[in-house]
Amino acid sequence: MNNGQVHTNLIKTEAKRLGFLSCGISKAGFLEEEAPRLEKWLKNGMHGEMRYMENHFDKRLDPTKLVPGAKSVISLLLNYYPKETQPQNTLKVSKYAYGTDYHFVIKDKLKSLLNFIQEEIGAVHGRAFVDSAPVLDKVWAAKSGLGWMGKHTNLLTKEVGSFYFIAELIVDLELKYDTPVTDHCGTCTACIDACPTEAIVEPYVVDGSKCISYFTIELKNEIPTAFKGQFDDWMFGCDICQDVCPWNRFSKSHSEPLFDPHPELLSMTKKDWQEITEDVFKKIFKKSAVKRTKFSGLKRNIDFIK
């Protein structure tokens, strides 16, 4: 067994020990097939006011520009599917934001994995990425065989579904590379049919500027009145395209205590949300990603849904 295989086995075993759902590895290099797709998506304005998507075009497509000498992209999945979800007939928060902000939880695990690699293998240089740098994480995860890109553009995995976070370690270490899996969406159009704002404009293409998650999280200005009545009670994020996906019948609840919600989150009624005070907001979302939208942003979303 060569070093690349030995090191790969070590890394995958440690990733599992740290609680990651799975780990796949790709050769770092320029994502040639993604360039025209990304260019067209940006040109058509499907990123809305997410201007940061226009930045670092070359880095977005080539991890060796982010980490000099990079040889491998280690992609990792971390399950966030909750044991309990919010009750019916209330204002809803996307499941990924129930507990502690995933950036902090995953960053700590990634640092531990990188430290392990450096201790066990030697002088390896690398960087950890959690949705916070120009990395096409879903593309790398698919390249690494962790799943395929569904028609809703989320990564899907057989027997698991899609309720997981994706993160990367980009390292200057040669490893054994995985191969992509095949697409298993078939003729299903459940996600396309269910999207209330028709954001999935065609299979595998999402117009981000029409997505409920975009309106409730990314958009800083007023939500366009044309979308009034189309939010299906989602006040932060949206899980509709994942909830209706047949592959998510395999979702199993996570085992990460930090992702457990504040108890009040699960007991709030629609009336409670409509009357929420800043103190209650701070208490329920003290460590949550919902803090990104601030109290004023959440109030704006709630008022829009009324």
Rank of each mutant, 00 (worst) to 15 (best):
E54L: 09
G69Q: 04
N3W: 03
L76Y: 13
S94N: 08
E264K: 09
I305D: 02
Y214M: 02
T179E: 07
N3Y: 08
S144W: 04
D193E: 09
C188R: 05
Y96M: 03
G147K: 06
L31R: 01
F304C: 05
Q274W: 09
D279F: 00
G237F: 04
A70Y: 13
T13C: 10
D243S: 14
Q86F: 07
F20M: 05
E33G: 05
I117W: 02
H56Q: 00
Q118S: 02
T157H: 10
H56V: 13
Q86S: 05
R37D: 14
E49T: 15
L110S: 03
G99Q: 04
Y80M: 07
K252A: 14
M1Y: 03
E159V: 09
L78I: 08
Y102A: 03
L18N: 01
A15T: 06
L265F: 10
E54V: 11
K158P: 08
T153N: 01
A141S: 08
H103N: 01
K109D: 08
D260A: 11
I284Q: 04
K12G: 15
L219R: 06
M235S: 15
S209W: 05
L169M: 00
A142H: 07
C185L: 13
S94E: 08
L76P: 03
H47N: 11
Q242L: 15
I170S: 00
P36V: 02
Y102G: 05
E14L: 07
E275I: 01
D207G: 12
T187R: 12
G45N: 09
